[in-house]
Amino acid sequence: MQLLVNGLIAGSLAALIAGGLALVYGVLGVFNLALGQMVLFGGYVTWWLHQSVGLPLSLSIAGGIVFGGVLSLFVFEVFIRPFYKHHRFLPLVTTIALSMILDGVLLLLFEERPRSILPGLKNTVQILGAYISMVQVVMIVLTFLLLCFFAYVLHSTAFGRKIHAVVQNDHAAMSLGIRAPMMHTIIFVVSGVLAACGGIYIGIDTSLTPTLAFSLTIKAYAAIIAGGKGNFWGAIFCAYLIAFLEQIVVGVQWFGMFTVPAGYQQTVALFVIIVFLLFRPNGMFASASRRA
């Protein structure tokens, strides 16, 4: 039971990050390898506003989310838009460069020390034999509500239908009067906001360190590849699945004989990527795109 709860906590974080990224991949077809750094920036700005400036938690979180949106807008306009129309592989290299720049800035501004937005002991409760803190319960519920809101926007509003149209066929959507370039920007900013929410989640649940960035990016891409590139719900389902797998692989005594060292936990996402790309490159829930 404890493994399931741990998986739910880690899965909620991964779902936040992977969901936005799945939309970006579905629409633009580009990989953003600076995603982990964008996640951390959202968390670090919230930490700075709360711990150093002394703002209330709610205002600090709002500040972190706004910063995440502004940062993603800047990233899109400078590192993605000038390149992806030229060749869709170029942003892969420009975002590698961006990840290095952001890594350096993170280290300069916040140092390598772990930073927690809410330091100190957290109240834990026991649910069905598993221990979970109240903060974690709130985070899981908030993530669930946020995903429900996205489900509503994507499936029940005109804006959601426009996103679907742009995901399915850019040019056909434009011929129907949908401003596809504007939608690209909005979707990228939404993914940045979700990434910032993920950073705030980490900062509140545990602590932020600059070295987390790359593993966050890899986990998000594992979820996208396993879920079917560009499939929002597939990515979210697989984010939870990978989180549960990570917990099970290192938390279970296999055949009653041996346990897998905790160091291999990060490797689960890598093997998910390798296995899916080898045996099911379109992912579990691949959606066929419409063609003329």
Partner: peptide, 20 residues
């Protein structure tokens, strides 16, 4: 360390801009 990382990132970005 951070200055080295940032300068390499900038070099890579400028190189991609020039070599796109």
């Amino acid at each position: 360390g951070p200055v080295q990382i940032m300068s390499f990132g900038l070099i890579l970005f400028v190189a991609v801009c020039v070599r796109r």
